[in-house]
């Protein structure tokens, strides 16, 4: 990457994501309410029973209802008073780390632990603005090797280690 060696603070200056005090209340409220509604809808078929003889649907309905209510109160309390500013997600780091974990999941049984670790480290390195690309392949091979040695041969976890 071209920003090699720059101090971390300079690199990320553009990606300020300090959460906004009031705005985050509205967003969190919306999130809670949506989650509650979706779960309410998903769990509608579970028999609720009565408070004296609770069925499997009793507590879910109670929790979802309270969640929707909490969300609505949060939105209403903050809607007018503060401007709605979204905290920006650290998309690059988040995407790369999540992708690294998912690739590990896909590869570990198909290609073995060594390859999975290798790909995981390389993918995660894409998410770090301070990555040194001459260093990364070495780091990846060393870490994958250590992982294979430690978990495969020393601890003898029942994990496939090599592709073949």
């Amino acid at each position: 990457m071209q920003d090699q060696g720059e101090p971390r603070s300079a690199v990320v200056a553009e990606a300020e994501f300090e959460p906004q005090a009031g705005g985050s209340d509205v967003l969190a409220g919306l999130l809670f309410a949506t989650l509650g509604l979706v779960a309410l809808w998903g769990g509608w078929a579970y028999p609720a029973g009565s408070s004296l003889d609770m069925g499997p649907g009793y507590l879910p309905r109670l929790v979802c209802g309270a969640l929707v209510l909490t969300g609505i109160v949060m939105v209403c309390r903050n809607l007018r008073s503060r401007s709605l500013r979204l905290p920006t997600l650290p998309m690059r780091a988040m995407g790369c780390v999540a992708a690294a974990i998912l690739l590990f999941a896909v590869l570990v049984e198909r290609a073995g632990l060594f390859v999975a670790c290798l790909v995981c480290v390389l993918t995660a390195a894409l998410g770090d603005p301070l990555t040194r690309w001459r260093e990364v392949p070495v780091v990846a091979v060393v870490f994958a090797g250590v992982a294979a040695l430690l978990f495969g041969y020393l601890l003898k976890l029942p994990i496939r280690i090599w592709p073949l």
Partner: peptide, 12 residues
């Protein structure tokens, strides 16, 4: 990367 690997292998 070491922390991440430890997490993945641990969970698996």
């Amino acid at each position: 990367p070491a922390i991440l690997l430890f997490c993945c292998i641990g969970i698996y």
